[in-house]
């Protein structure tokens, strides 16, 4: 399997200042698959994507993409690698001063010398793929949340990347848009022959579209498996997550010292 792995994450450690976020995680993303990385808010999912994209450097271990260790690349090498990656940011991050068309055309114009007619066809094809060809003349502010996410999706895959990363693509979407975006992720991955990583905490939607799931908690991978394995798992953590229970291994309280002390309750009063 490792011969077909596009992304290998080995013993990666990462800390902001002195606060450890990731404590030795190991993940493997085989070529052509859609992988979900799940975990509670603040467990380091976005951080993990930034490590893959080379925006952050691990303090230990390495991230290998297509056989190259990301943090050992120089500026040029990294930019070269990033051209083959696409990243959908949490809130789309569309360029607000450009029309939908220009947003999707952006990377084609920056990175290729294609004539404008071909760019036009490509842009309309990408927009058609997400079902929004008719919006090409609109500004991002004129789109609904779900539409903006789909335009961002079209922009992410504009240059047919080999690796597509989605950071919480379902956040803030209504159930219909959510299903639409979920299906698009799967369809685009298969159409492009790409590998996709979906960072999310939407278990139900991901179980439908992904090939493999990793759970991260407390900086380590606590569970992994195919959707079938996950949905029947009786691991307490997975069970809590899949069924959205409040009590379980994931604590409701952020660590915060002694409650009584915080409220100035002293014994003997």
């Amino acid at each position: 399997m490792s011969s077909q792995a596009l992304v290998e994450i080995r013993d990666v450690n990462f800390a902001y200042d002195s606060r450890p976020i990731l404590k030795g995680v190991n993940l493997t993303f085989p070529k052509g698959k859609v992988i979900a990385v799940m975990g509670g808010s603040g467990c380091g999912k976005t951080t993990l994507l930034q490590l893959i994209g080379g925006a952050l450097k691990p303090s230990g271990g390495y991230v290998k993409v297509d056989g190259q260790v990301i943090h050992e690349l120089d500026h040029k090498g990294l930019y070269h690698m990033r051209r083959r990656m696409g990243m959908l940011f949490q809130f789309g991050a569309l360029f607000t001063d450009m029309s939908v068309y220009d947003n999707v055309a952006f990377q084609m114009r920056e990175h290729t010398d294609l004539p404008e007619e071909i760019i036009r066809d490509l842009v309309l094809m990408k927009l058609h793929a997400v079902g929004l060809r008719g919006t090409h003349h609109l500004m991002p502010a004129e789109l609904s949340g779900g539409m903006a996410r789909r335009v961002a999706l079209a922009r992410t895959v504009a240059l047919d990347p080999m690796l597509v990363m989605y950071d919480e693509p379902f956040a803030g979407l209504d159930p219909i848009s959510l299903t639409v975006v979920g299906n698009l992720i799967r369809r685009l991955n298969d159409a492009l022959g790409a590998t996709s990583v979906v960072v999310t905490h939407d278990v139900q939607e991901s179980l439908k579209i992904v090939d493999y799931i990793y759970f991260i908690a407390d900086g380590v991978v606590v569970a992994e498996g195919t959707p079938a394995e996950i949905s029947t798992s009786d691991k307490p953590f997975v069970h809590q997550f899949v069924h959205g229970e409040m009590d379980g291994p994931v604590p409701f309280h952020y660590p915060g010292g002694d409650y009584g002390q915080d409220l100035n309750l002293r014994p003997g009063r």
Binding site: R82, F89, F95
Partner: peptide, 21 residues
């Protein structure tokens, strides 16, 4: 304000991830 908002809405990071300086 424009640059600040571009940063706040991750447009700058998005650009960096697209290998555009």
């Amino acid at each position: 304000a424009e640059i600040g908002l571009m940063k706040a809405t991750e447009q700058i990071s998005a650009m960096e991830m697209m290998a555009i300086n």
